[in-house]
Design a protein around this nucleic acid. Structure first.
Length: 363
DNA sequence: AATAAGTCCAACCGCGGTCGC
DNA sequence: TGCGACCGCGGTTGGACTTAT
């Protein structure tokens, strides 16, 4: 590992922290606070640069850190937030109490990206791979998907669920083996179809979050309906009202909740990739190709024109999709008196924030 | 049993923003 | 206004650990 330029100058320690160093830093910060980080190492008697001390505190020593593996709900929330915020790890981490941006970033890079690919979803755009790719890229991605699936089969943990991936209308679940050999960072829930998980339900935390992607917008429908055959019509249309504003403004592909992707196939071929492809066929259903492209371009331009900083600081501005929200939440947010004439959209979004708050206990 | 390959994660790098002088 | 110090963030990497051969 490298070393901060300041560490070179001052011949400071680098690399892993010893328990003694941790103790010194913990004691110092607990007692005096960190104040100016650059002065912390000297005051705490550490041969480290302030930057290193700050990082150690934030990522490891902070008392409010949550230890242990990520829950399914946390993973779902990360995926959904990533669809909105992209690689803004600190913003994502802010919605997950006790988790650090570094931790989330690592989880994303090591696990969640693969999971999304296995579900036929591009981890960058959160759209189906079949939609993202074209030409050579398509072949490349498909090969990658095959490889991933192949890797899954070679794993003891995933062998049991292989039939789900292989595609058959009457898949079987090998219930003869326990889950004890599951990969440490991939829970069995990710590999199991809905109905095989005992307590898991699709994330409701973001179910009304005005995501640009439709995970949230559709998850209520899907999570309350475990029968995949009802998620789409036989022609691949999503079941919600296509005449609604929602349908006409949506720029993203309709997706079943990620946790149930393997089941979410209204045809015999149940593999994730083909499902994603089926799902993408419902994209802008009813429009001509040129009309679809035009609409996509318009919406993309609208999004790009807005300042990202504004989005991040005030996700209420996450337009143009916020107006698609249904106003069906029972939780009301206290009116923000500082905000002059808050729009209906803002109020609706505020409810989503409130819902997140209620679920996680803080924002 | 040895070792090559893969995975995970703590920690570093470098950049951009902010603030005070 | 310019400059430097500091902070925070996202990207990257080194190495420990695990799994496969």
């Amino acid at each position: 590992m490298g070393r901060h330029s300041c560490c070179y100058k001052q011949k400071l320690r680098k690399g892993l922290w010893s328990p003694e160093e941790d103790e010194k830093l913990l004691t110092h910060v607990t007692k005096y606070g960190h104040g100016c980080w650059s002065s912390v190492p000297k005051q705490a008697g550490l041969q480290r640069c302030g930057k290193s001390c700050r990082l150690r505190w934030i990522n490891y020593l902070r008392p409010d850190l949550k230890r242990g593996t990520f829950s399914q709900e946390e993973e779902d929330l990360i995926i959904e937030l990533h669809a909105v915020l992209g690689n803004r790890w600190s913003q994502i981490a802010a919605q997950l109490p006790g988790r650090t941006d570094n931790e989330i970033k690592n989880l994303w890079n090591s696990c969640l990206k693969k999971k999304l690919k296995l579900r036929g979803i591009d981890p960058v755009t959160h759209k189906p791979l079949s939609e993202v790719q074209n030409g050579d890229d398509k072949d490349k991605e498909l090969n990658e998907l095959k490889l991933l699936k192949s890797e899954s089969r070679t794993s003891d943990a995933t062998k049991a669920y292989t039939p789900i991936m292989e595609g058959c209308s009457s898949f079987k679940y090998n219930n003869g083996t326990s889950n004890t050999n599951l990969p440490t960072n991939c829970s069995s829930k990710d590999l199991l179809p809905d109905g095989f998980t005992t307590s898991y339900t699709t994330s409701g935390l973001m179910s009304n979050f005005p995501l640009q992607m439709n995970y949230a917008s559709t998850s209520d429908t899907f999570s309350s309906n475990s029968n995949p055959s009802q998620w789409f019509t036989k022609t691949g249309r999503p079941i919600f009202n296509m005449n609604s504003e929602f349908a006409s403004h949506s720029i993203s592909t309709v997706l079943a909740p990620a946790q149930t992707s393997y089941l979410g196939v209204p045809c015999d071929d149940i593999c994730a990739a083909s499902y994603a492809e089926n799902a993408s066929q419902s994209h802008f259903w009813g429009l001509t190709d040129s009309a679809k492209e035009t609409q996509i371009q318009v919406l993309q331009n609208q999004t790009e024109e807005a300042k990202w900083g504004d989005y991040v600081q005030n996700p209420i501005l996450m337009l143009p999709v916020t107006h698609l929200l249904s106003d069906n939440l029972g939780v009301m947010l206290p009116h923000n008196k500082q905000q002059e004439e808050p729009s209906q959209t803002c109020n609706m979004f505020s409810k989503d924030i409130q819902k997140l708050t209620a679920s996680f206990g803080h924002i």
